[in-house]
């Protein structure tokens, strides 16, 4: 009997001590995936923005590929990427405000409005440098609307 208790207690103790670590790992993996989404979009926006600013010459193929990236990334279902406990303060490197989890509907609506803006960008990207410039405002507005409500300031 005694020989059974010890391993059981040990297992329970280990289990307890592993539990938070596992949650952290899952949270960190989700956060890394979120940051990956943002990096992909920043890269694509850099290509479109460079053209919009006139720093880079307009190239239809590149512009369309960049706009497609924005469109596809913003179509990713977000619900796997925001596990509870992955907010700023709980997780190093996270700037996600806790309000995300209390306003998930609004948060999702803001993500979807980004997708709408990228649809317009897809059209613009096939047209001209000027059209891209005009479409950047709505994309930027969608980014800012969510960052304003749900991202903590950079420290």
């Amino acid at each position: 009997m005694k020989s059974l208790i010890l391993p059981a207690v040990t297992a329970a103790t280990l289990g307890l001590s592993f539990q938070p670590a596992l949650a952290d790992e899952a949270g960190e993996a989700a956060m890394a995936a979120r940051h990956g989404e943002m990096s992909l979009m920043a890269h694509a926006l850099g290509i479109l923005g460079g053209m919009a600013k006139g720093q880079v010459e307009y190239e239809k193929i590149k512009a369309e590929a960049a706009a497609e990236t924005l469109y596809v990334v913003s179509s990713i279902d977000q619900h796997l990427l925001w596990p509870e406990g992955s907010e700023a303060g709980a997780l190093d490197g996270s700037r996600a405000k806790a309000e995300i989890w209390t306003n998930m509907d609004d948060f999702t609506a803001k993500w979807n409005s980004l997708h709408t803006a990228t649809e317009a960008m897809k059209t613009a990207a096939g047209e001209s440098q000027q059209a891209i410039g005009a479409a950047m405002g709505a994309v930027g507005g969608a980014c800012s609307a969510c960052h304003k409500a749900y991202r903590t300031p950079a420290s």
Partner: peptide, 30 residues
């Protein structure tokens, strides 16, 4: 040009975007 573009779209030169109260400022300046 970066500053003017930030005020128009909210995008930094690295294509991060404005947040916090500055997001309001950008939507005014636009």
């Amino acid at each position: 040009q970066d500053i003017a573009y930030y005020l128009e779209t909210g995008f930094t030169p690295d294509f991060d975007s404005a947040g916090g109260h500055m997001a309001n400022v950008v939507s005014n300046m636009a």
